[in-house]
Simulated scan of single mutants.
Amino acid sequence: MSWCCVVVSRFRIPTFRDVCVARRIVSRYLKPTPLVYSRKASRILGCDVYFKLENLQPVRAFKVRGGVYYMYRMREEAARRGVVTASTGNHAQSIAYAGSLFGVDVKIVMPHGVPQIKIEAVKDLGAEVIIHGSYFEESRMFAERLAEEKGYLFVHSINEPLLYEGVGSMHLEVLEELPDVDVVINPLGGGSGVASGCIVYKTVDPSIMVFAVQAEGAPAFYESWRRGELVDLGRVSTRAEGLAAGRAYELPFMILRERLNDVLLVSDAEMEGAVRFIFDAIRQVAELSGAASTAAAFKIRNLLEGKRVVLMVTGGNIDADSFASILKGGSVK
């Protein structure tokens, strides 16, 4: 049996219909986020630029869509057993927020080095935070061990199909407001954002171009996509904690390998420049990973010329000191 067949047998691949079903549930709990046209960004990049503002979600990141849908679907079992997951921040807030909606006890394992603003945000939502490991994969393995030992319901932040179905609702919103979109650029940490985008856009019109963006210091999916096999690079080196995955995972790889147009790499400095650009263009706050799509647009601006382009601003969880430093031309410490 081929590797591809093994993956298909282990993981349910979400469909466009699944995303449409999820949208009806997600919309009960979360309002649509704005799709904002920017004259300044359009002039500078030479195309029609729209920013999808997922930084305006209740937890300031797109992942809350998946968390709400997962917890809704699993609410009875989750309430009975309690939930544990691992995250570098935004998935953690997503599950914690959803847990607060449905009365579920939530434990979050986070690696050392996660910004304090994200840790405090998770605690404010009523979840318990456990610090373990130096990067995401170490935290994930510890969370899985806790689930096995204590009987908690483990939520895999990357290989759980329900998360993709909920997250895909943001792309349905894009199509509703901009049905003639040509290009969508989405950051890729674990993969639910861009993978759900491919499910939506490529089903509606295969000519819509979808690009994923990774950090130069965490290029596991980039390498996997080019080699045609999953790659585990171990440690990562990026200040964009939302993109700090040291390995590629089965479910997003299976979805993206035949649908994605390309994977682009951006440096931390380029993402910091994009944070400044977004604030200057539309006065919105983005974290480094949330600005990765904008950083990538500058690298392929010739390809984007004359097209209708959506840049997914996937998160805005950045502390005031780091944001101020970036605006002054400095770097995140």
Rank of each mutant, 00 (worst) to 15 (best):
Y97H: 12
H91C: 10
A86W: 00
V114S: 06
P111L: 11
V122A: 10
A96K: 03
E128A: 14
A96P: 07
I119G: 02
Y70C: 07
Q93A: 09
M110G: 02
Q116M: 12
E76R: 15
G67K: 01
P115M: 02
A78C: 09
E76A: 08
V114T: 07
K123M: 08
A127M: 13
H112K: 14
A79Q: 14
G89E: 04
A92N: 04
A96N: 07
D105E: 13
A86P: 02
L125V: 11
T88Q: 08
I108P: 00
F102V: 03
E76S: 13
F102Y: 14
H91V: 12
K123G: 07
G82H: 12
F102C: 08
I117N: 09
G126P: 13
T88E: 07
P115H: 02
G67W: 02
F102N: 09
Q93N: 08
T88A: 12
V84R: 00
G99E: 01
L125H: 13
G89R: 01
H112W: 04
P115N: 04
Y97L: 05
S100Y: 09
Y70L: 15
G99M: 11
G67T: 06
S94M: 08
Y72I: 12
I130E: 10
G113T: 05
A127C: 04
A127H: 04
A127G: 05
N90S: 14
I130Y: 10
H91S: 12
A92S: 10
R73Y: 07
N90P: 13
G82V: 06
P115S: 02
Q93P: 03
V106F: 05
M74L: 06
A78N: 04
N90Y: 06
G103F: 04
R81L: 14
R80T: 13
R81M: 04
G82C: 13
V129Q: 05
E128M: 09
G82A: 12
L125E: 01
A98N: 11
N90Q: 03
G113R: 07
Y97P: 03
E128N: 07
K107W: 06
L125I: 09
L125A: 14
K118T: 03
V83S: 09
M74R: 15
I130Q: 08
M74K: 14
V68N: 08
I108E: 05
P111S: 11
K118Y: 05
A92F: 05
V122K: 00
M110I: 12
V84S: 13
D124P: 00
S87P: 13
N90D: 15
P115W: 01
V68I: 15
I130V: 15
V122I: 13
V122N: 01
A86Y: 00
A127S: 11
V114W: 10
I117E: 10
A92Q: 04
G99N: 08
E76F: 11
T85C: 15
I117M: 14
V104P: 02
Y72W: 15
R81I: 03
T85A: 15
A96M: 08
V106Y: 01
G103K: 03
I117V: 15
V109D: 11
Y97T: 10
V104K: 00
G126L: 11
G99P: 14
D105Y: 05
V83W: 11
I117P: 02
E76Y: 12
A86S: 12
I108N: 00
V68R: 00
T88W: 07
S94Y: 07
V114D: 08
E128Y: 03
I117H: 06
I108F: 01
K107D: 09
H91M: 15
Q116F: 02
A86L: 07
A96Y: 00
